[in-house]
């Protein structure tokens, strides 16, 4: 999926068999064995155990007992689960607002003639910074009494808020940090997409009298659409998996807003690791997987309407 959209397929055929260098398919398997073993050990096996556990009542330690679909029926009747699902959906929607921002920024950076790399690095830094460190800094920025944000707002005469302790604001406050953190990777993908657009299209259109804005909507956007699609799919997947920002920014025994701000992965963590209820946690994880699969599937269906492959 990734390679399909990100880079145009190179149609180099492998040399036909019998060349002598790669005589046996067995060698091929042996060569991919490290990756394959890693894949099975780190993804396939944990997935299967999770799937199994979701049908069991598993105590903190030791084997579980089979309970059928009990975990799932309990889950569907659990208001905190639906609340978490709504929170995750809202958070995802907020992060999707970051995609147009990234497109415009990527186009602007492309226009910069000198020091383009500097901008890329600046925007990419949050991606390679520890989420925990980022969250600590933002906790300070959002602090209701001593925070930078409230200070700036006070200069503008706007009353300050407890951004991460008031349930009215928490998801949005966290969403802004999420957008900021994902911006870097999105800019790289979109930047690569922009550079693959042939220059002569712009030259031809400007001869025909098209302005910058018109070029952006008529040439840049359609030809960038495969990259935009990739960015959108990745954003939705990572937004649905959000956990660390909530954990570091909101987790305090005095934070009554946390109960209303839990995302689905946070709920999973709480059930499986704080309350030691692994079966229930596993059921949440499986439901999350299905949600992500459904969301991705829908996007792939919808792409036919707006993604333009040349």
């Amino acid at each position: 999926m990734t390679t399909d959209v990100a880079s145009p397929p190179t149609r180099q055929r492998n040399r036909s068999r019998g060349g002598g260098l790669l005589p046996s398919p067995g060698w091929g398997y042996l060569m991919i064995a490290p990756a394959l073993i890693g894949l099975v050990a780190l993804y396939v096996w944990p997935f299967l155990t999770t799937f199994g556990k979701s049908f069991m009542d598993v105590p903190a330690f030791g084997p579980g007992t089979f309970t059928g679909v009990d975990n799932y029926t309990e889950l569907l009747g659990d208001e905190t689960f639906w609340q978490a699902l709504r929170n995750s959906a809202l958070y995802t929607a907020i992060l999707l607002l970051g995609v147009p921002v990234a497109i415009v920024l990527a186009a602007l950076i492309e226009q910069v003639s000198r020091g383009r790399a500097v901008y890329r690095v600046l925007f990419f830094l949050p991606v390679v910074t520890l989420p925990v460190a980022v969250s600590m800094v933002w906790r300070f920025i959002y602090n209701g009494d001593f925070g930078l944000l409230n200070y700036v707002l006070s200069l503008l005469g706007v009353p300050g808020q407890y951004w991460v302790a008031d349930a009215t604001f928490t998801i949005y406050a966290v969403g802004v940090v999420g957008i900021w953190m994902s911006l870097g990777i999105n800019l790289i993908i979109l930047g690569a997409g922009l550079q693959s657009i042939p220059r002569d299209l712009y030259e031809a259109s400007s001869l025909d009298g098209a302005g910058r804005v018109r070029q952006f909507f008529r040439i840049t956007l359609p030809l960038l659409s495969p990259s935009v699609f990739l960015v959108t799919v990745l954003t939705v997947i990572s937004a649905l998996q959000m956990f660390d920002l909530i954990f570091v920014m909101l987790r305090s025994v005095n934070n009554t807003a946390l109960a209303d701000s839990k995302t689905i992965v946070y709920l999973f963590y709480e059930k499986a690791f704080v309350e030691f209820d692994q079966g229930y946690g596993a059921a949440i994880a499986i439901v999350l997987l299905m949600v992500i699969m459904a969301a991705t599937l829908v996007q792939f269906r919808l792409q036919r309407r707006w993604v333009f492959y040349d």
């Binding site: 959002y142 991460v164 009554t256």
Partner: peptide, 9 residues
Amino acid sequence: TLKQLSDTE
């Protein structure tokens, strides 16, 4: 308040 104590321990 609790909100203040949530932001600053």
